[in-house]
């Protein structure tokens, strides 16, 4: 069954022990710097010398590598091709294909943009790999994020696989009653109707019961919530966070100014 419902890999590392907010700020700072830095090689260097080493520090390089090759590279590769072909800049044509041409400039431009996206997605992947979602949410709730908001995020993550398996059950049930789910496009689309009805109405009924269940456990209680886990937050981390925030602000200001 679905034992694993998040990206999170449970390991003991410095990166795992960092406060979730510190990691989140770091991700934001990396993204901002990669996107606003005027120097061409910034995103490339950030990826090679910050993000990859961080994946080793977090002891999740293998998983990170998997996610990168299967998810991030294909997307970035596609972006690279699109931009290389359709960016109408530069004169040094390298390659011509009917009306499409690749110039040295458009190639460079595409490479930088693809790298920026890689920095963005891979730093976020690293964050998800080393941060438990409930730890993140209870830390953010402690800092004033509304409990309802945190609940919606976490429960959605958990309930998606449940809905998936339920739709599978409904399909099997409808098939055993003679529903034809194979054939051409229209036939398949038509066979969705007997699936969607039970799934949607069933989910609505469930929502009511779940609302009762969490209400019975004091979800809307006006007292100040406590948390089962103590989430470490040192004053050293606070300083780091402020440093990162200054970097973020600087990169925004410089970008507008220049």
């Amino acid at each position: 069954m679905h034992e694993r419902l998040s990206f999170h890999i449970k390991r003991d590392s410095v990166l795992h022990r960092l406060n979730p907010l510190t990691k989140l700020t770091l991700v934001l700072a990396l993204i901002m710097v990669a996107f606003t830095s005027p120097w061409y090689w910034t995103p490339h260097l950030l990826f090679l010398f910050v993000i990859i080493p961080l994946s080793f520090i977090g002891k999740v390089f293998r998983e990170f590598f998997f996610a990168a090759t299967r998810l991030i590279l294909p997307a970035a590769g596609f972006l690279f091709l699109m931009q290389a072909f359709f960016q109408p800049i530069g004169e040094h044509v390298i390659f011509k294909f009917y009306f499409l041409d690749i110039t040295q400039e458009s190639l460079m431009f595409a490479f930088k943009n693809a790298m920026r996206v890689i920095v963005m997605v891979s730093s976020f992947t690293l964050f998800l790999l080393t941060t438990h979602p409930s730890e993140l949410m209870s830390d953010l709730t402690r800092r004033g994020l509304p409990g309802q908001f945190a609940y919606v995020i976490i429960s959605t993550l958990q309930i998606l696989p449940q809905i998936q398996s339920k739709s599978q059950t409904i399909i099997s049930a409808q098939r055993s009653r003679g529903l034809d789910t194979e054939g051409n496009f229209f036939k398949r689309a038509g066979s969705l109707v007997p699936l969607v009805g039970p799934l949607v109405f069933g989910s609505l009924v469930e929502v009511e019961e779940r609302a009762i269940a969490i209400e019975a456990r004091g979800f809307t209680s006006k007292s100040i919530k406590t948390s089962l886990y103590e989430i470490a937050d040192t004053s050293f981390e606070k300083i780091i966070r402020w440093g990162l925030i200054i970097i973020i602000i600087l990169s925004i200001v410089l970008n507008i100014w220049l």
Partner: peptide
């Protein structure tokens, strides 16, 4: 099941967290 928790232990603690 609240859907907000990943283990049975956390699930049972959910109500106590809510009432502080």
């Amino acid at each position: 099941i609240s859907g907000a928790k990943y283990t049975v232990f956390e699930e049972i603690a959910f109500g106590l967290e809510n009432i502080g």
